[in-house]
Design a protein around this nucleic acid. Structure first.
Length: 191
DNA sequence: TATGAGATCAACT
DNA sequence: GTTGATCTCATAC
């Protein structure tokens, strides 16, 4: 099926608009990837956001134009992928937390040394390892190789909930997921 | 199934 | 020196 490629203006909006619209979109890096099933929004006024305390060497790309990738090292070992967005021109991003693997399965399994498909990309660190994301992917435009992002074909059912693994502003319901997906890093509380 | 340690880096106090 | 947008492995119930 023909898919519409997402260009940089797509990201030039509030994280709160962009984040839910990314659910169901397809993300590929060097032809490896799949369907986005879980993201979290980090607004620059949010104490949990890296950019909350201002610009540092690490988070500099968050202060750049929207539509670029921000990759950082988490807990010293993992890499995490973010898409920079634009409320008021600076420093908000969407963390990509999980995808449903669709393309390049063999490559992902090799990188992860794992056969179970459900765990290949269900979590920010796992996703980055499976897709081969490192600091060299930080600061690159999202509408140019090696990145390819395609809009979803139909509107999926989306669930929202509180974010995961953070201590500041932990109550804000800025985590979004594809309802019923097996590939979520953790189930959402339905109510 | 559930808890706990360890890996290891940049920012912050 | 401590903490964190994490994950894996080991050990215990």
């Amino acid at each position: 099926m023909p898919l519409r490629s997402l260009k940089r203006p797509f990201f030039a909006r509030s994280v709160h608009e962009v984040a839910p619209e990314l659910i169901g979109a397809t993300l590929l890096i060097d032809d490896v990837g799949g369907r986005i099933v879980e993201v979290e929004a980090y607004h620059h006024t949010d104490p949990a956001a890296h950019s909350y305390r201002g610009r540092t060497e690490r988070n500099a790309v968050m202060f750049g134009p929207p539509g670029f990738a921000y990759v950082y090292r988490s807990y010293g070992i993992h890499w995490c992928l973010n898409f920079v967005c634009e409320p008021e021109g600076s420093a908000s991003a969407v963390l990509i937390r999980a995808i449903e693997p669709l393309e390049g399965l063999a490559k992902m399994r090799r990188r992860r040394k794992l056969t179970e498909e459900r765990l290949l990309c269900s979590g920010p660190g796992r996703l980055a390892e499976a897709m081969g994301i490192t600091i060299v992917h930080s600061g690159l435009a999202l509408d140019r190789p090696p990145y390819e992002i395609y809009a979803r074909a139909t509107e999926p059912e989306i669930v929202a909930g509180v974010r995961i693994g953070i201590t500041k502003a932990a109550e804000l319901p800025w985590r979004y997921g594809l309802k019923g997906s097996k590939f979520l890093s953790k189930p959402f509380q339905e109510r």
